[in-house]
Simulated assay, not measured.
Amino acid sequence: MIDHIGLDRDGGTKVAQPSKRAAILNAGRAEFHERGYNATGIAGITTRAEGAHKGSFYNHFPSKEDLAIEVITDYGKSQRMEMLRDSSVEPLARIQAHFEFMAEELRKEGLHLGCLLGNFAAEMSSETPRMRATVIGNFTAWSGLLAAALDEAADIRSADGHDSETTAWLMIDAYEGAALRGRATDSPAPMNSFITIGLPQMLRAFAEHYTG
Protein backbone atom coordinates (compact mmCIF):
# COMPACT_ATOMS: atom_id res chain seq x y z
CA MET A 1 0.00 0.00 0.00
CA ILE A 2 1.26 3.52 -0.79
CA ASP A 3 0.26 6.98 0.33
CA HIS A 4 0.68 8.66 -3.01
CA ILE A 5 2.56 8.74 -6.30
CA GLY A 6 3.58 12.12 -7.64
CA LEU A 7 5.74 13.68 -10.33
CA ASP A 8 9.24 14.99 -9.79
CA ARG A 9 10.38 18.34 -11.17
CA ASP A 10 11.45 16.73 -14.48
CA GLY A 11 8.01 15.25 -15.00
CA GLY A 12 9.02 11.73 -14.04
CA THR A 13 7.19 9.59 -11.55
CA LYS A 14 8.38 9.94 -7.98
CA VAL A 15 9.22 6.90 -5.96
CA ALA A 16 6.07 5.76 -4.21
CA GLN A 17 5.94 6.65 -0.53
CA PRO A 18 5.19 3.75 1.80
CA SER A 19 1.87 3.98 3.58
CA LYS A 20 1.87 5.16 7.17
CA ARG A 21 -1.45 3.42 7.78
CA ALA A 22 0.08 0.18 9.04
CA ALA A 23 2.46 2.11 11.30
CA ILE A 24 -0.44 4.07 12.80
CA LEU A 25 -2.48 0.89 13.24
CA ASN A 26 0.39 -0.89 15.01
CA ALA A 27 1.14 2.14 17.16
CA GLY A 28 -2.53 2.43 18.08
CA ARG A 29 -2.71 -1.19 19.14
CA ALA A 30 0.38 -0.79 21.32
CA GLU A 31 -0.88 2.44 22.90
CA PHE A 32 -4.36 1.04 23.56
CA HIS A 33 -2.89 -2.11 25.09
CA GLU A 34 -0.46 -0.26 27.32
CA ARG A 35 -2.53 2.79 28.30
CA GLY A 36 -6.14 1.85 27.64
CA TYR A 37 -8.52 3.48 25.19
CA ASN A 38 -9.49 6.53 27.24
CA ALA A 39 -5.92 7.43 28.23
CA THR A 40 -4.60 7.14 24.69
CA GLY A 41 -4.39 10.27 22.59
CA ILE A 42 -3.87 10.71 18.88
CA ALA A 43 -0.66 12.64 19.55
CA GLY A 44 0.77 9.65 21.41
CA ILE A 45 -0.20 7.33 18.57
CA THR A 46 1.37 9.48 15.87
CA THR A 47 4.52 10.00 17.94
CA ARG A 48 4.86 6.24 18.30
CA ALA A 49 4.27 5.77 14.56
CA GLU A 50 7.54 7.38 13.53
CA GLY A 51 7.17 9.83 10.69
CA ALA A 52 3.43 10.19 11.14
CA HIS A 53 1.60 13.35 12.16
CA LYS A 54 -1.94 14.33 13.01
CA GLY A 55 -2.79 14.88 9.36
CA SER A 56 -1.54 11.40 8.51
CA PHE A 57 -3.79 9.94 11.18
CA TYR A 58 -6.92 11.58 9.82
CA ASN A 59 -5.99 10.62 6.27
CA HIS A 60 -6.48 6.99 7.28
CA PHE A 61 -8.84 7.00 10.27
CA PRO A 62 -11.76 9.42 10.74
CA SER A 63 -11.49 9.16 14.54
CA LYS A 64 -9.81 7.38 17.42
CA GLU A 65 -12.86 5.13 17.70
CA ASP A 66 -12.49 4.08 14.06
CA LEU A 67 -8.88 3.12 14.74
CA ALA A 68 -9.92 1.21 17.85
CA ILE A 69 -12.54 -0.73 15.88
CA GLU A 70 -9.91 -1.86 13.41
CA VAL A 71 -7.48 -2.73 16.20
CA ILE A 72 -10.15 -4.86 17.90
CA THR A 73 -10.99 -6.60 14.63
CA ASP A 74 -7.33 -7.36 13.88
CA TYR A 75 -6.77 -8.57 17.42
CA GLY A 76 -9.64 -11.02 17.06
CA LYS A 77 -8.14 -12.38 13.85
CA SER A 78 -4.74 -12.81 15.52
CA GLN A 79 -6.18 -15.16 18.14
CA ARG A 80 -6.44 -18.05 15.66
CA MET A 81 -10.12 -18.70 16.12
CA GLU A 82 -9.90 -21.06 13.15
CA MET A 83 -8.37 -23.61 15.53
CA LEU A 84 -11.88 -24.20 16.84
CA ARG A 85 -13.02 -25.31 13.37
CA ASP A 86 -10.19 -27.79 12.78
CA SER A 87 -12.05 -31.06 12.28
CA SER A 88 -8.79 -33.01 12.25
CA VAL A 89 -8.60 -32.47 16.04
CA GLU A 90 -11.11 -33.88 18.52
CA PRO A 91 -13.47 -31.03 19.54
CA LEU A 92 -12.67 -30.85 23.26
CA ALA A 93 -8.94 -31.18 22.54
CA ARG A 94 -9.10 -28.30 20.09
CA ILE A 95 -10.83 -26.12 22.71
CA GLN A 96 -8.02 -26.87 25.18
CA ALA A 97 -5.37 -26.15 22.52
CA HIS A 98 -7.12 -22.93 21.54
CA PHE A 99 -7.07 -21.51 25.06
CA GLU A 100 -3.50 -22.71 25.57
CA PHE A 101 -2.49 -20.76 22.46
CA MET A 102 -4.23 -17.62 23.69
CA ALA A 103 -2.68 -17.94 27.13
CA GLU A 104 0.78 -18.25 25.57
CA GLU A 105 0.14 -15.15 23.46
CA LEU A 106 -0.78 -13.24 26.62
CA ARG A 107 2.45 -14.37 28.23
CA LYS A 108 4.50 -13.26 25.21
CA GLU A 109 2.90 -9.80 25.07
CA GLY A 110 3.12 -9.31 28.83
CA LEU A 111 0.73 -10.52 31.48
CA HIS A 112 0.56 -7.00 32.91
CA LEU A 113 -1.14 -5.86 29.68
CA GLY A 114 -4.01 -8.34 29.89
CA CYS A 115 -6.34 -9.40 27.08
CA LEU A 116 -6.82 -6.48 24.70
CA LEU A 117 -10.43 -7.47 23.97
CA GLY A 118 -11.22 -7.67 27.68
CA ASN A 119 -9.49 -4.34 28.28
CA PHE A 120 -11.65 -2.64 25.67
CA ALA A 121 -14.75 -4.25 27.17
CA ALA A 122 -13.90 -2.72 30.55
CA GLU A 123 -13.84 0.77 29.01
CA MET A 124 -17.04 0.62 27.00
CA SER A 125 -19.46 3.52 27.39
CA SER A 126 -22.43 5.10 25.69
CA GLU A 127 -20.00 7.49 23.98
CA THR A 128 -18.47 4.69 21.88
CA PRO A 129 -21.44 2.70 20.55
CA ARG A 130 -19.69 1.37 17.46
CA MET A 131 -16.73 0.20 19.46
CA ARG A 132 -19.09 -1.48 21.94
CA ALA A 133 -20.81 -3.27 19.05
CA THR A 134 -17.44 -4.44 17.72
CA VAL A 135 -16.37 -5.82 21.10
CA ILE A 136 -19.71 -7.58 21.57
CA GLY A 137 -19.48 -8.95 18.05
CA ASN A 138 -16.04 -10.43 18.71
CA PHE A 139 -17.15 -12.03 21.95
CA THR A 140 -20.29 -13.40 20.31
CA ALA A 141 -18.37 -14.88 17.38
CA TRP A 142 -15.88 -16.45 19.80
CA SER A 143 -18.69 -17.93 21.87
CA GLY A 144 -20.36 -19.28 18.75
CA LEU A 145 -17.23 -21.14 17.66
CA LEU A 146 -16.78 -22.64 21.12
CA ALA A 147 -20.43 -23.69 21.26
CA ALA A 148 -20.17 -25.30 17.82
CA ALA A 149 -17.17 -27.34 18.96
CA LEU A 150 -19.03 -28.39 22.10
CA ASP A 151 -22.05 -29.39 20.00
CA GLU A 152 -19.77 -31.45 17.80
CA ALA A 153 -18.33 -33.19 20.85
CA ALA A 154 -21.74 -33.94 22.34
CA ASP A 155 -23.55 -34.62 19.08
CA ILE A 156 -26.82 -34.03 20.92
CA ARG A 157 -27.78 -30.54 19.88
CA SER A 158 -31.45 -31.04 20.71
CA ALA A 159 -31.06 -33.12 23.88
CA ASP A 160 -32.79 -31.89 27.02
CA GLY A 161 -30.47 -29.93 29.27
CA HIS A 162 -27.75 -29.53 26.64
CA ASP A 163 -26.64 -25.90 26.67
CA SER A 164 -23.37 -25.47 24.81
CA GLU A 165 -23.90 -21.70 24.55
CA THR A 166 -23.88 -21.22 28.34
CA THR A 167 -20.85 -23.51 28.68
CA ALA A 168 -19.02 -21.50 26.00
CA TRP A 169 -19.71 -18.22 27.81
CA LEU A 170 -18.56 -19.72 31.10
CA MET A 171 -15.23 -20.62 29.48
CA ILE A 172 -14.82 -17.11 28.08
CA ASP A 173 -15.75 -15.52 31.40
CA ALA A 174 -13.26 -17.74 33.25
CA TYR A 175 -10.50 -16.97 30.75
CA GLU A 176 -11.12 -13.22 30.86
CA GLY A 177 -11.27 -13.27 34.66
CA ALA A 178 -7.91 -15.05 34.81
CA ALA A 179 -6.46 -12.55 32.31
CA LEU A 180 -7.77 -9.64 34.39
CA ARG A 181 -6.32 -10.92 37.66
CA GLY A 182 -3.07 -11.79 35.90
CA ARG A 183 -2.95 -8.22 34.60
CA ALA A 184 -3.55 -6.77 38.07
CA THR A 185 -0.91 -8.96 39.72
CA ASP A 186 1.46 -9.39 36.76
CA SER A 187 1.40 -13.07 37.66
CA PRO A 188 0.99 -16.21 35.53
CA ALA A 189 -0.78 -18.00 38.39
CA PRO A 190 -4.40 -17.12 37.48
CA MET A 191 -4.04 -18.15 33.85
CA ASN A 192 -2.02 -21.24 34.76
CA SER A 193 -4.83 -22.30 37.10
CA PHE A 194 -7.41 -21.79 34.38
CA ILE A 195 -5.43 -23.72 31.76
CA THR A 196 -4.31 -26.61 33.96
CA ILE A 197 -7.24 -26.97 36.38
CA GLY A 198 -10.32 -24.91 35.56
CA LEU A 199 -10.64 -25.54 31.82
CA PRO A 200 -9.83 -29.29 31.97
CA GLN A 201 -12.42 -29.72 34.72
CA MET A 202 -15.04 -27.91 32.64
CA LEU A 203 -14.27 -30.02 29.59
CA ARG A 204 -14.21 -33.24 31.59
CA ALA A 205 -17.55 -32.44 33.24
CA PHE A 206 -19.04 -31.65 29.85
CA ALA A 207 -17.75 -34.90 28.37
CA GLU A 208 -19.00 -36.99 31.28
CA HIS A 209 -22.44 -35.40 31.25
CA TYR A 210 -23.10 -35.21 27.54
CA THR A 211 -20.95 -37.84 25.84
CA GLY A 212 -20.95 -40.59 28.48
Results as ranks from 00 to 15, higher is better:
residue 159 A to R: 07
residue 133 A to F: 15
residue 198 G to Y: 04
residue 18 P to L: 01
residue 170 L to T: 10
residue 206 F to D: 00
residue 181 R to F: 14
residue 83 M to R: 15
residue 64 K to F: 01
residue 107 R to M: 06
residue 175 Y to S: 11
residue 113 L to P: 08
residue 205 A to Q: 01
residue 68 A to K: 15
residue 131 M to T: 13
residue 60 H to N: 13
residue 36 G to P: 04
residue 128 T to Y: 07
residue 34 E to Y: 09
residue 38 N to Q: 15
residue 57 F to Q: 00
residue 188 P to D: 04
residue 170 L to Y: 11
residue 28 G to N: 13
residue 84 L to M: 13
residue 79 Q to L: 14
residue 195 I to A: 03
residue 133 A to D: 09
residue 178 A to Y: 11
residue 31 E to Y: 12
residue 36 G to I: 09
residue 126 S to M: 10
residue 154 A to D: 00
residue 24 I to V: 07
residue 136 I to A: 10
residue 90 E to R: 03
residue 66 D to T: 08
residue 20 K to S: 04
residue 102 M to P: 03
residue 159 A to G: 02
residue 72 I to K: 08
residue 16 A to W: 06
residue 75 Y to P: 06
residue 183 R to E: 09
residue 105 E to R: 11
residue 56 S to P: 03
residue 82 E to V: 12
residue 27 A to M: 14
residue 5 I to D: 04
residue 97 A to E: 11
residue 209 H to N: 01
residue 89 V to Y: 13
residue 95 I to P: 01
residue 94 R to L: 03
residue 161 G to I: 08
residue 178 A to M: 08
residue 181 R to I: 15
residue 75 Y to N: 09
residue 100 E to H: 08
residue 4 H to Y: 15
residue 187 S to V: 06
residue 169 W to Q: 07
residue 207 A to S: 03
residue 155 D to S: 08
residue 191 M to L: 07
residue 25 L to M: 04
residue 167 T to G: 09
residue 207 A to V: 01
residue 26 N to M: 12
residue 159 A to T: 02
residue 25 L to W: 03
residue 73 T to A: 10
residue 39 A to L: 15
residue 155 D to G: 15
residue 75 Y to D: 05
residue 17 Q to L: 10
residue 77 K to I: 12
residue 180 L to V: 03
residue 69 I to N: 10
residue 15 V to Y: 12
residue 195 I to C: 03
residue 122 A to P: 08
residue 10 D to W: 00
residue 59 N to W: 06
residue 118 G to T: 01
residue 159 A to S: 05
residue 125 S to W: 07
residue 131 M to W: 06
residue 206 F to Y: 10
residue 40 T to Q: 11
residue 44 G to E: 14
residue 180 L to S: 14
residue 204 R to H: 05
residue 84 L to Y: 05
residue 158 S to R: 03
residue 206 F to L: 02
residue 167 T to Y: 13
residue 6 G to M: 09
residue 74 D to Y: 15
residue 158 S to G: 02
residue 40 T to C: 09
residue 132 R to A: 09
residue 102 M to Q: 14
residue 173 D to N: 13
residue 166 T to V: 13
residue 11 G to A: 02
residue 16 A to D: 05
residue 88 S to K: 02
residue 170 L to C: 07
residue 70 E to P: 12
residue 114 G to W: 03
residue 120 F to S: 14
residue 145 L to Y: 13
residue 153 A to V: 00
residue 156 I to P: 00
residue 80 R to G: 04
residue 44 G to L: 14
residue 150 L to P: 05
residue 56 S to M: 02
residue 118 G to S: 07
residue 65 E to Y: 02
residue 117 L to E: 09
residue 2 I to W: 11
residue 148 A to T: 08
residue 26 N to G: 05
residue 93 A to F: 01
residue 59 N to F: 11
residue 172 I to C: 09
residue 97 A to H: 04
residue 190 P to T: 10
residue 100 E to W: 03
residue 180 L to F: 09
residue 202 M to H: 00
residue 102 M to E: 10
residue 105 E to M: 11
residue 186 D to C: 13
residue 161 G to C: 06
residue 58 Y to W: 11
residue 212 G to L: 01
residue 150 L to H: 07
residue 132 R to S: 07
residue 124 M to G: 12
residue 56 S to I: 00
residue 203 L to I: 01
residue 168 A to S: 12
residue 58 Y to I: 05
residue 76 G to S: 15
residue 15 V to F: 05
residue 147 A to D: 02
residue 105 E to S: 14
